[in-house]
């Protein structure tokens, strides 16, 4: 069974384009540390076009987290900005990229969303 992190990045790579990042360009490297091991995901954004690799290359922004936390962020059970404020997720480099990229992570799987009073859910 593939973990949520892998699913998240593979999905981004497959889509190849994210409208929420249409004005964004830059590279973000995710360093997922566990003990002495670090897994890398490199997300290159060019006006919304996405390219995902697992390279350990220099990037404009580097985000650090544990694999467990990142898995939870990748499937919406944890919130990236709150994790950042807690110090559980770290950022070096251009902070603006983090705020932009954070928006493409999914919401909570348990979210009900707004509900129409008479007609059920809005969405």
């Amino acid at each position: 069974m593939v973990d949520a992190t892998t699913r998240f990045f593979e999905d981004l790579d497959r889509r190849g384009y994210e409208p929420l990042l249409a004005k964004t360009s830059g590279t973000v490297r995710f360093d997922l540390h566990e003990g002495a091991q670090t897994r890398h995901w490199l997300l290159a954004i060019d006006h919304g076009r996405l390219d995902v690799t697992q390279e350990d290359r220099e990037a404009d922004t580097v985000i650090g987290a544990s694999p467990v936390l990142f898995d939870d962020i990748a499937d919406g059970r944890e919130h990236g900005l709150a994790a950042l404020l807690r110090g559980d997720m770290t950022v070096t480099g251009d902070a603006r990229l983090v705020v932009q990229v954070e928006r493409i992570f999914p919401g909570s799987p348990d979210a009900r969303g707004p509900r129409r009073r008479f007609a059920g859910e809005v969405h």
């Binding site: 929420l20 919406g76 919130h79 705020v99 928006r103 493409i104 992570f105 999914p106 919401g107 909570s108 348990d110 979210a111 009900r112 969303g113 707004p114 969405h123």
Partner: peptide, 8 residues
């Protein structure tokens, strides 16, 4: 920072 998903 415009909303992008559902978060209750």
């Amino acid at each position: 920072l415009q909303g992008s998903r559902f978060d209750d």
